[in-house]
Amino acid sequence: MAASIESAPAASVQGAVLPAVAWALARDLKISLRSKAELGIQLLFYVIVVTLFPLATTPERSLLAAIGPGVLWVAALLASLLSLSRLFAADHADGTLEQMALSPWPLPALVSGKIAAHWLTTGLPIVLLAPLLSAQYALERDAMWILTAALLIGTPILSLLGGIGAALTLGLRGGGTLLALLVLPLYVPILIFGAGSVDAVRAGFSAGPHLSLLGAGLLVALVGAPFAAAAAVRVALD
């Protein structure tokens, strides 16, 4: 049972990008699933934050429907941030990151795999929970599906940009706080277009432009972020 997913697939691995991504993804998923408590805490945080707002504000349906998308997005941002500091920190502390940087596998590919695992364990559950949680905000069916779609496109960007921040703050004291200061401003455009897409639908317009911009952001982040994060990891090890 041990070796099935971790074995390196190719003899020469220098240019093996996809196997490296898959390998790092499988390894990180396996480790995450062994420490389920941490995953649960972060999801519970998301659920609780989203639930607090209707309790603290008003039961009026129109107001709730207006603030709902924004609240879900902000909660998703914070939940993603909560787990980001763990993305590289554990591997940095136990020396795995050194071995990754010295491995013949391409480091940006290994980093991509780790970021993908981060999204699958934190971003995807947030997306899946969104339709359920948006029921508390009396969102119309259309708005709810657009919100979920926007989260589906937007949360991977949160993981990718956050990966750069997590790598940049490696080994710093108080890195967690600095990470928030560094990454949250970068999240602002995602927040604007993500929440804006739902507002557009509720106002009777198409959500297409907002979602397209989010998609474009995702593509840019997909291409650029792994290289930036890998460079930051190398700087942190120097």
Partner: peptide, 24 residues
């Protein structure tokens, strides 16, 4: 630093480390 993961068993750690070294 030993580069070992507390969550993984001895043999899993070894297979992971060997794979990182590019060895199947």
């Amino acid at each position: 630093l030993p580069a070992l993961k507390d969550e993984l068993s001895a043999i899993e750690n070894l297979v992971v480390l060997a794979a990182l070294g590019g060895e199947k």
